[in-house]
């Protein structure tokens, strides 16, 4: 539900970003082959806006998430968060900048350390950002309630929860530093249908409550349509089409988007 659309005051802007991977060499003396996962991509996300990134496996959408999160550096181009070029920040400044953007992963089983309690995991960003220890229990309890879980769940371990509950816990950890951007990489794909809707609703509620911008990566057009304002269609590391969700879905310009849509339409 954003009033600030597109490029006016982008919270995130990705400018001409390229990322290449060197693949294992196939011959003894030949050059190692290079895979360009992301080719000169540009887009931006406004404050409180949800941008959907749709593409199939191998489209480069997950690489994009890792670049935005600073897990990897682009070979070319710039990722700006709130106007700052992330690659140029000092490690200390980068750590502070991290408060502003957090991530929710696809597999709720893998995103929580099985050996740590839920409360420990949720408090991890607080420890990393040197928030006084005395504030931790209250902050953890607060976010647990925000994601619809009981505060006393903090003492339990991940295996005691269902997939949907674990994804709520992962979301709680992501919002505990009150970020301004959430990167959700296939965040509902591993969930059962009935739980998927709950998590999508939760993300929309949190967005309204906290003014979050969301970069929502998914292969599922119906999910993108349910939650996003604008969308990008990716294929082979390139952006094929970009625009407001209703426009792209009702009048796709690119043949590939049309093919994706016709597959999705059959499902409705």
């Amino acid at each position: 539900m954003s009033q600030t659309q597109g490029t006016a005051h982008p919270i995130l802007s990705v400018e001409q970003v390229t990322r290449r991977y060197r693949l294992p060499r196939t011959t003894l003396f030949g050059e190692a082959p290079v895979l360009t996962a992301v080719k000169g991509i540009s887009f931006s996300i406004g404050i409180g806006e949800t941008l959907g990134i749709v593409g199939e496996s191998g489209s480069g959408k997950s690489t994009l998430a890792r670049l935005v999160m600073g897990f990897e550096q682009p070979d070319e181009g710039v990722v700006r968060f709130d106007g700052y070029d992330l690659a140029r920040l000092t490690p200390a400044a980068f750590r502070i900048a991290r408060r502003g953007f957090q991530m929710v992963f696809q597999d709720p089983n893998g995103s929580l350390d099985p050996r740590r309690t839920v409360g420990w995991s949720i408090a991890e960003p607080l420890r990393a950002q040197s928030v006084p220890l005395s504030e931790h229990p209250a902050r953890v309890a607060e976010v647990l309630e925000q994601v619809g879980l009981r505060p006393d769940y903090a003492k339990r371990f991940p295996h005691e929860f269902s997939g949907g509950q674990r994804q709520r816990i992962a979301i709680a950890r992501a919002i505990v530093m009150r970020p301004r951007l959430l990167v959700a990489d296939e965040a509902v794909s591993a969930l059962d249908v009935s739980v998927q809707a709950q998590i999508l609703n939760l993300l929309m509620d949190l967005q309204d409550e906290l003014g979050l911008a969301i970069m929502f990566i998914s292969h599922d057009l119906a999910v993108i349509s349910s939650i996003c304002d604008r969308m990008i269609v990716m294929r082979h590391g390139e952006v094929l089409e970009e625009g407001p969700v209703p426009t792209v879905i009702s009048a796709p310009r690119h043949a590939y988007t049309q093919a994706l849509l016709s597959a999705a339409r059959l499902e409705d």
Binding site: Q198, S225, S226, V245
Partner: peptide
């Protein structure tokens, strides 16, 4: 189930999806 068209045809902006409570 998220629907492709329903949110676009809706006049109220992004609507919450109906859910089955609990897990």
């Amino acid at each position: 189930r998220p629907k492709l068209w329903a949110p676009i045809l809706s006049t109220h902006g992004k609507r919450r999806l109906p859910t089955i409570p609990g897990s």
